[in-house]
Amino acid sequence: MSSTATGVELAHGTRAVVLLEGESDRAALLALAVLRGRDLAAEGVAVLAMGGITNIGHFLDRFGPTGCGITVAGLCDAGEERHVRRHLARTGLGTPTSRTQVEGLGFFVCDTDLEDELIRALGVAAVERVVAAEGELGALRTLRHQPAQRERSAAAQLHRFLGSRGGRKIHYARLLVEALAPDRVPRPLDAVLERVRT
Rank of each mutant, 00 (worst) to 15 (best):
A132D: 06
G163C: 02
T112I: 12
E117S: 13
L162R: 00
R165W: 03
T91A: 13
Q146R: 15
V127G: 00
L114P: 11
R90L: 05
A156E: 15
T112L: 14
D111Y: 03
V127D: 10
P96F: 08
I119W: 08
Q149L: 09
E128N: 04
D111Q: 13
V131S: 10
E103L: 01
H171K: 04
V131F: 15
P96K: 02
A125S: 13
R152F: 03
A148V: 12
A154Q: 12
V130K: 04
L143T: 01
H145P: 04
V102P: 07
R168M: 06
H159L: 04
A154P: 13
Q149N: 12
T95I: 01
G94D: 05
G138H: 09
A179I: 08
L158D: 09
A155D: 12
K169T: 00
L140H: 08
G163M: 02
R160Q: 15
A148P: 14
L137D: 14
V177N: 08
R99F: 00
G135R: 15
A173F: 03
A125P: 03
Q146P: 06
S164T: 00
R174H: 11
R120P: 15
F161A: 06
A125N: 11
V124E: 05
S164A: 10
L158Q: 10
L114A: 03
D116I: 00
R120T: 09
A139F: 03
P147L: 05
A179Y: 04
D113Q: 04
R144K: 14
T100L: 09
T91D: 02
L176R: 10
L176V: 02
G163W: 00
R129L: 03
Q146C: 10
T97C: 15
H145L: 08
S164D: 09
T91K: 10
Y172Q: 11
L158F: 06
E151D: 11
H171M: 03
Q149M: 15
E136A: 09
L162P: 03
P96V: 01
